[in-house]
Amino acid sequence: MKRLIPFVIAGLLTTASGAAAADDIPVIWPPLEASEVNLNDFLWVARPVVVFADTPADPRFVEQMTLLEARIEDLAVRDVVVIVDTDPDAKSELRTKLRPRGFMMVIVGKDGGVKLRKPSPWTVREITRQIDKMPLRQEEIRLRKATAG
């Protein structure tokens, strides 16, 4: 999995540069496992959305993953990488850093800061609206418009 991360990052860089058409946006699915990633690998490149649960059978986890998968393209446009952690016993670096209690969905900005924590599932529309309010995302939109027009 660690060998996959450079390709994910390279694909996101192409998308972030504005050079890729909408059809060229890489769709990152299935999600990455928390035990196999380091948040620092995504710094200034991607916006991790981390979904925690104590078990993959948690109904909130199942609902969140269904919501994300249904509109993963909308997340890819915003350079989102989905990361999951459903094993509290593994004590992943992400679980230690973000300290979830049961189910939790976290949006991490490209700057590495936690932008939102939610104890219940959110739709992709809610997630993308939150991302689109971020100053860095606003700058990306301005740059994309400037290079397109």
Score class of each variant (00 low, 15 high):
V45Q: 12
P48G: 06
D54V: 02
V62P: 04
D24K: 07
I127K: 00
V114N: 10
M104Q: 15
V81F: 06
V84M: 03
K133G: 07
L98V: 04
I25K: 02
S35T: 08
M105N: 11
T55K: 06
V124Q: 04
A22E: 15
F42E: 02
T128H: 05
A57Y: 13
A76C: 15
P59L: 12
V27I: 15
R101E: 15
T86I: 03
V45C: 03
R47A: 07
V108R: 07
D54Q: 10
I72F: 03
P121W: 14
D24S: 09
E36Q: 07
A90I: 00
V84G: 07
V81Q: 09
R71T: 14
P119L: 08
N40K: 08
W44K: 06
L43E: 11
D58H: 08
P88F: 00
S120V: 08
V84Q: 14
A76L: 13
A57C: 05
P48C: 02
V27C: 10
A76P: 14
L67C: 03
D24I: 00
V81Y: 08
D79A: 12
W29H: 11
A90S: 12
R47E: 11
S35F: 09
K115W: 05
A53V: 02
I28N: 14
L32N: 06
Q64C: 09
E73G: 06
D111S: 02
G113C: 04
D87F: 01
E126I: 04
P48K: 01
V80C: 13
S92V: 00
L43S: 10
A70E: 11
V124A: 04
K110A: 11
I131C: 03
R71F: 08
D132W: 01
K118I: 01
F61V: 04
W122Q: 09
R99A: 12
P26L: 12
K118S: 14
R78Y: 12
A53E: 05
R78T: 10
M105Q: 12
L98A: 05
D58I: 04
K110S: 10
T55R: 10
D41V: 04
L98Q: 08
P119T: 07
